[in-house]
Design a protein around this nucleic acid. Structure first.
Lengths: 184, 184
DNA sequence: GAATACATGTAATGCGTTACATGATTTA
DNA sequence: TAAATCATGTAACGCATTACATGTATTC
């Protein structure tokens, strides 16, 4: 009934109360690698969550600024979140434009196709390096406890690492096969 | 201007002329792993492609059945396809509900969370095995030529293999860390 | 007799992005 | 003084899914 976005917001609010603006900003942070939403989605979703009793807001007057609406998760919200977290997740096939292009590569100019997959590989190598730097930074933090923020970050960094590596290697595999054989 | 779905249809029509029904069926075949669309998307998209001069159809009368509309790609269609195939592809972050759950796992019951990630790992292992069987079957075919259908299939199978493996291993990594330590 | 495949469409609904709208404060 | 940040919303548009709609032929 509640959307996945709603659950993402509950997940963030389970840590600490936040405003709609702060939630939108969070969704542009580290989380953006696996869940994105702009403020135009966040505000209506918060209203829906509140209508369901999963969050409540308090209005905080500010000098010279419009009132802040700070949202906090309710007990019902926590229950809904923890139930959703372990509920069955049926596999959904994700669209991949890169895969689609690979599938149709016979109709591209080989030289151009080689350039394309080399470029893709580079993009993934770059992001892989970013994830690696992030992991190195995280290793300093005490993150053994799964309830810690450091563990949450490590979990998604490990995922990013694995995916970018897989994607980079596949793009390189493609490029090698697609590039016309060089004259010796 | 033309949507990615339109390009996917052009990619299929570049091999041989097909009807809307056949295209929809194709999109439920091997391609579904990286691009899905139902017939309710295909028919209007074909009309748009035709309005742009990228495909044309011939009407084939059939006994006792409604006329078939068989679509073929035009020269302009081939040009549009080959240009699109190598055009710059800016990285788009994909949503992953599994990653979102991992990020919020602190708010789940550890035992249930462990069960969840074990189950996810199993799903990916199963699909990995399917891709492996597919690759074995493809190895028999002569698929060295990048213009062959066998190469197109191999390319996307290699991708599936890499991704399912990465995902399975990450889920196992998660499960290990999330599961409460067993009493000896 | 019921379900599935063949065959082609339209309509309703939902989710996500971009643009519109407004206005104060802070930084370059 | 121009841009970015803080701060909260609504509206328009596009893409995708599900449901609606219709009718024949074949298979279980």
């Amino acid at each position: 009934m509640t959307s996945t976005l709603g659950m993402a917001l509950l997940g963030l609010l389970a840590r600490e109360p936040l405003t709609g603006y702060e939630l939108s900003r969070s969704l542009k942070g580290a989380i953006r690698h696996f869940w994105q939403a702009s403020h135009s989605q966040v505000y209506p979703e918060l209203a829906r969550l509140e209508a369901q009793g999963l969050v409540v807001h308090e209005r905080i007057p500010q000098a010279g600024k419009p009132d802040q609406k700070r949202f906090g998760i309710t007990e019902a919200g926590r229950r809904a979140l923890s139930a959703w977290l372990v509920s069955p997740l049926e596999p959904v096939a994700k669209r991949s434009e890169a895969a689609l292009r690979a599938y149709c590569v016979a109709h591209a100019e080989p030289r151009e196709a080689g350039r394309f997959f080399r470029e893709q590989a580079l993009q993934h190598r770059t992001r892989l390096a970013e994830f690696e730097a992030f992991r190195t930074a995280l290793e300093a933090e005490p993150g053994a406890d799964i309830a810690s923020e450091a563990f949450a970050n490590t979990a998604v960094v490990m995922r990013g690492l694995a995916f970018e590596k897989a994607q980079a290697e596949w793009c390189e595999w493609m490029a090698e096969r697609v590039e016309p054989v060089r004259k010796r």
